[in-house]
Amino acid sequence: MSMDDRKYAKSHEWAKMDGAVVVVGISDHAQQELGDITFVELPAVGDTVAAGGECGVIESVKAASDLYAPVGGEVVEVNMALEDAPELINQDAFEAGWIMKLKPADVAELDSLMSAEEYDALM
């Protein structure tokens, strides 16, 4: 079950408002599909990303997958803990395994994402 306090993209990222920023990670379903995550290429703080644009890479033992920004905006913080401990995403995809925080260009973009119920129904 995905957490219902946030929204989800078809490409398996979650986005959650936290004050003025949007926290982004990947869903628990996505981490299960990837298997043991061994490397995360994070965007740089200050990068501007577009909704749906590539902004990083997640590698597992099995394969590499692109990370897409669920909403557009400026990257204001990245989860540096993932550099040495990418397995945090496997252990806790919704909290400790967050990937980046964005200052959203348009908060309304969140509305076009799916609810947890809609996302889980797709899986």
Partner: peptide
């Protein structure tokens, strides 16, 4: 099977 519990733990 590719994995049982997980590749890294195995």
């Amino acid at each position: 099977p590719i994995q049982y519990a997980g590749i890294v733990s195995e």
